[in-house]
């Protein structure tokens, strides 16, 4: 098993991981955090819309948040990958 870190918008549908960090300013970190998306929480990618549309991510197994690609690329997720 190895650990891979990649941004949210690069995840595939149904892939799971844990938020590693949010590469943004104070405003973005607070905003996402207030919605439940912050380092340490488990996530699952529900879907990515075509034509560079938003991604929908499940947070903590209960909440679902839709984010534009620009924000999604700032959310880094740690995943465990079997070889």
């Amino acid at each position: 098993m190895t650990e891979v870190i990649k941004p949210l918008h690069r995840m595939k549908e149904e892939e799971r991981g844990v938020v590693f960090s949010i590469e943004g300013g104070h405003m973005l970190i607070t905003r996402l955090g207030a919605m439940g998306l912050r380092p340490g929480v488990p996530v699952r990618l529900v879907c990515a819309q075509p034509a560079r549309g938003p991604v929908v991510v499940e947070v903590l197994g209960r909440m679902r948040i839709a984010l534009g690609r620009g924000v999604a690329r700032k959310v880094l997720v740690k995943m465990e990958k079997g070889i």
Binding site: L32, P54, V56, R64, I65, A66, L67, G68, V71
Partner: peptide, 10 residues
């Protein structure tokens, strides 16, 4: 025009 950032309720 900011991007969408939306809570999708059940």
């Amino acid at each position: 025009s900011p991007e969408i950032l939306l809570d999708v309720p059940p």
